[in-house]
């Protein structure tokens, strides 16, 4: 991939993915909402060998989506990384908080990727890769809205892949487990945590090799298989 559009370029995982493409001398179009942070990321990637364009946007705002995609054209790889964890417990699980998480983690991504898919389908080539999460594989009490948003995103990506499979457009669903990034800064760390560098290597390999759904690190596939096999009667009583 020579051209990469990164949505949510200040994400810790996205920064590492972009570095791997910078090492290959890629052309990057970076979108993020914080200007100072985006500037720091863009400078780093330029020094590492990428040619870089940037745009500032709050990706919750669908009115910006078409304009961003038009500026980033021609599209080759669209990598969607932005997201928020939210916190069901802190916000007391208010409906407003839930809606905000759904807007950032599901509505925005669906709007962006629907529009991107139309463009890629029309040109008959390209790739969409998005960061979903293992949290979307089964709802848990500790982050139910986040889990619901990621479950929705996973299902949307799978449908998109199905729809575009004849059109020469690939769709890669990435499901990271726990990753040590600002999103999880407030949580105590355990050996299940992976580094964003590790996750980024898996992401780029999946895109290079044409994988459909990738868990990262790979063993989360089996962990989640086991988690999904627990009968609901039992699962509902676990503190997760």
């Amino acid at each position: 991939m020579r051209r990469v559009l990164v949505l949510g370029a200040t994400s810790a995982i996205a920064q590492q993915v972009a570095r791997l493409y910078a090492d290959r001398g890629a052309e990057l179009f970076l979108v993020a909402r914080n200007e100072e942070r985006l500037g720091a990321v863009a400078d780093d990637l330029r020094v590492r060998g990428a040619s870089v364009e940037t745009a500032i946007a709050d990706l919750d705002d669908p009115a910006r989506h078409d304009e961003l995609l038009a500026r980033a054209a021609p599209l080759e790889l669209v990598f969607l990384a932005h997201g928020v964890l939210g916190d069901a417990r802190d916000t007391g699980g208010t409906a407003e908080a839930a809606e905000a998480v759904l807007r950032t983690d599901l509505l925005g991504p669906v709007s962006l990727l629907t529009r991107a898919a139309q463009r890629l389908e029309a040109q008959g080539s390209g790739c969409i890769a998005a960061l979903s999460s293992v949290a979307g594989d089964r709802g848990r009490g500790s982050n139910l809205v986040y889990g619901a948003a990621k479950a929705g995103l996973t299902a949307f990506l799978s449908g998109l892949r199905n729809r575009l499979s004849g059109a020469g457009v690939r769709v890669v669903t990435v499901k990271p487990g726990f990753v040590d990034t600002p999103m999880t800064d407030h949580l105590p760390k355990n050996p299940l945590y992976a580094s964003p560098e590790r996750v980024a290597r898996d992401v780029v390999r999946a895109i290079d090799t044409g994988a459909d759904v990738v868990y990262t690190p790979w063993w989360w596939r089996f962990v989640m298989l086991a988690v999904r096999l627990i009968p609901e009667r039992l699962f509902k009583r676990l503190s997760l």
């Binding site: 810790a12 720091a40 990321v41 400078d43 780093d44 020094v47 590492r48």
Partner: peptide
């Protein structure tokens, strides 16, 4: 450890600015 970005590199003079 996450302040790990390069900022500017001058390949003529060999001057590197980084975090």
């Amino acid at each position: 450890s996450r302040l790990d970005r390069f900022i500017e590199f001058d390949p003529e003079q060999g001057v590197l600015r980084c975090e």
